[in-house]
């Protein structure tokens, strides 16, 4: 056995999230980060889904409720705007659809294999709330 110092690790005892040095991760957006192959960002849970959320930007008011309540960091928001959905990491829990406040909703669940254009074409009309 090799005698390690107090600040050395056995091989495999430590995983690095990034390749190389990262200066300030809290201000670096995901697309600019040098993710290593050990970061779960490089993996996918897309096969967990039975239904997928589809985003219709025509009705979105950029309230960001979906962004804050998404458990899987799958709502991509840039410059205070909702941009789209990260289908590699979305597990299809539908919280984003539930918290969407617009009428009609700007996020809805559709079958996983459904085409996105088809889903957008069949988007429901504005609902008149009964008084």
């Amino acid at each position: 056995m090799i005698d390690n110092g107090w600040d050395e690790f056995e091989i495999g005892a430590m995983l690095r999230s990034f390749d190389g040095a990262v200066k300030d991760i809290a201000t670096t957006l995901q697309e600019d980060r040098p993710y290593s192959k050990n970061n779960s960002f490089t993996a996918s849970v897309a096969d967990w889904r039975i239904e997928k959320p589809v985003f219709n930007k025509d009705y979105c008011i950029d309230c960001q409720f979906c962004w804050i309540y998404c458990p899987d960091i799958s709502i991509i928001s840039r410059d205070k705007k909702m941009v789209g959905i990260d289908y590699d990491h979305c597990k299809g829990c539908a919280i984003c659809v539930e918290v969407c406040p617009t009428n009609p909703k700007s996020l809805l669940m559709f079958e996983e294999k459904m085409d996105e254009d088809e889903a957008l074409a069949g988007w429901p009309e504005k609902e008149n709330k009964e008084k």
């Binding site: 960002f41 490089t42 804050i68 458990p71």
Partner: peptide
């Protein structure tokens, strides 16, 4: 406000194995 908050760069990553709809990762992110 929430719009300003949404410019944060998350330090918790997806493709973790928490159940769909788990509140743990919502709390950790916040």
């Amino acid at each position: 406000n929430l719009k300003e908050f949404s410019t944060s760069a998350d330090r918790f990553e997806g493709a973790n194995l928490l159940c769909p709809g788990c509140a743990h990762s919502i709390i950790v992110r916040e």
